[in-house]
Design a protein around this nucleic acid. Structure first.
Length: 418
RNA sequence: GUGGGUGUAGCUCAGUUGGUUAGAGCGCCAGGUUGUGGCCCUGGAGGUCAUGGGUUCGACUCCCAUCAUUCACCCCA
């Protein structure tokens, strides 16, 4: 156990870290284009924040949180998602008095105690964005278009967008009555989980994966068909907004999302070449959340995108991520004097912003050449006692194999110009 | 929480009906004369065969348990 990463965690090794950096760069440029500012929030928060913000009835709160007491007896929880923390920060830092709307994004790790499987880890990475202060469907459109553009920029195809509306407290209340009326006669035939949900959150019964339940609820009234005028208008606005930007979508009346805070628009981006964890990105509007967390009534909307799943999808679509530049120059040296000279030259090159390396373990020239080859050096400079004496060094082009003499004095300027 | 698969070198895997010093490829290190990489050749380092029990004259091989890992269900990113 000593040299073992905890279950559900993993190292991102030097070999693959460039892929993450690449995606992070694309994301930050994207967010800049859309006018979103980065926010960095703590890894843990007071437990109540998630209980309230994510919702007591959710699986996340009921069984997946990493909760612990600190030495002061406070109950803290490793963030299982990003929205709650951002909402807390919005309220705590008085962002209501910033220019509206407030548009934020984050790149975080999140933690959920679940059984591990493909595309699902206990520590995972999310890119997310949140917008506060506008109830307009225009924000819904903007946020969705941002994810859509991200996929385009990364070269991804076959990602489907599914949207739905789950209404506001007003229409949901009426709808819940209607739904419960429909469910009452079949309640005894539903699975235990659904029975439990009947009182607490009947909406989620629609999301049940049990074959039997699915069959029984097939003709249940859909929330989408029972929206109040305001929500209906909002949804229509979203649709025309997406059409306007030429973004294709499906309406999926069954998207409910497992988090309690959503209102009106909910959406997800799903990989078509399935994979069981096909949901790459999920999000929606949460107009009541800020108030629920103790702020003034403030409309909000956001999404979270799983980086591991994104990478999986890119890999399965054979998308090539450019590898970083290697070493420009390897300085090989033989003998003490030459090594001292080489060491200084390497440092001077580095100071000029050139990627340079030299021998660090006293290897033979042959071994140094092999090493230079392995690290993909473009040039090698060979410096030995001869060179020190004659004031000349050999400069070798590793791609073509050709080499020529250069004077030791001019070597720095020559290399700078390579 | 529930169910299935898998645990042999850093990595990918062989390992005969249980039989004595456990193998290969890749990778790593060193050499193939006197100062030059890629190809090739040679050598070397590296394994408590996941762990603990059991069966047996004898277990990497069979049985049980534990742990780890992976896939799936629930749910989600």
């Amino acid at each position: 156990m000593l040299a073992k990463a905890p279950k559900g965690t993993r190292d991102i090794l030097p070999d693959e870290v460039y892929k993450w950096q690449y995606i992070e760069n694309v994301i930050s440029r994207l967010c800049e284009n859309f006018g979103y500012k980065e926010i960095r929030i703590p890894v843990f928060e007071y437990t109540e924040l998630f209980q309230r913000g994510v919702g007591e009835t959710t699986d996340i709160v009921q069984k997946e949180m990493y909760t612990f007491l600190d030495k002061g007896g406070r109950s803290l929880t490793l963030r299982p998602e990003g929205t709650a923390g951002v909402v807390r920060s919005y309220i705590e830092n008085g962002m209501a008095s910033l220019v509206q709307p407030v548009k934020l994004y984050y790149n975080i790790t999140a933690y959920r105690y679940e059984n591990v499987q493909k595309g699902r880890y206990r520590e995972f990475h999310q890119f997310g964005a949140e917008v506060f202060g506008s109830p307009s469907y225009l924000v819904d459109v903007e946020v969705i278009s941002m994810v859509d553009l991200l996929f385009k920029r990364l070269g991804l195809n076959n990602i489907e967008l599914n949207i739905n509306s789950i209404g506001c407290p007003k229409c949901r209340k009426e709808y819940n009555l209607k739904l419960k009326e429909f469910l009452r006669p079949i309640l005894n035939d539903l699975c235990q989980t659904c029975k439990d949900r009947y009182e607490r959150n009947p909406l989620r019964i629609l999301d049940c994966k049990e074959e039997n339940c699915k069959k029984l609820i097939k003709n249940a009234p859909a929330l989408l068909d029972n929206l109040c005028d305001e929500c209906k208008e909002h949804f229509e606005g979203l649709r025309s907004g997406l059409d306007n930007l030429d973004i294709k979508y499906n309406i999926d009346k069954n998207i409910v999302r497992g988090l309690d805070y959503y209102t009106k628009t909910v959406f997800e981006f799903v990989s078509v070449n399935v994979g069981t964890q096909g949901t790459i990105c999920g999000g929606g509007r949460y107009d009541g959340l800020v108030e629920l967390c103790g702020g003034k009534p403030t409309p909000g909307i956001g999404f979270a995108l799983g980086i591991e799943r994104l990478l999986m999808e890119m890999e399965s679509q054979g998308i090539n991520i450019p590898e970083p530049e290697g070493v420009d120059i390897y300085v090989a040296s033989l003998g003490e004097k030459a090594t001292a000279f080489a060491s200084k030259l390497v440092f001077q090159l580095r100071s000029e912003g050139i990627n340079a390396e030299g021998d660090l373990i006293g290897r033979s020239l042959k071994a140094q050449m092999k090493y230079a080859d392995k690290i993909n050096a473009t040039y090698v400079v060979v410096i030995g006692d001869n060179e020190i004496e004659t004031n000349k060094a050999v400069l070798k082009n590793m791609k073509t194999g050709e080499q020529k003499d250069v004077s030791l004095d001019s070597i720095l300027t020559r290399l700078k110009n390579k």
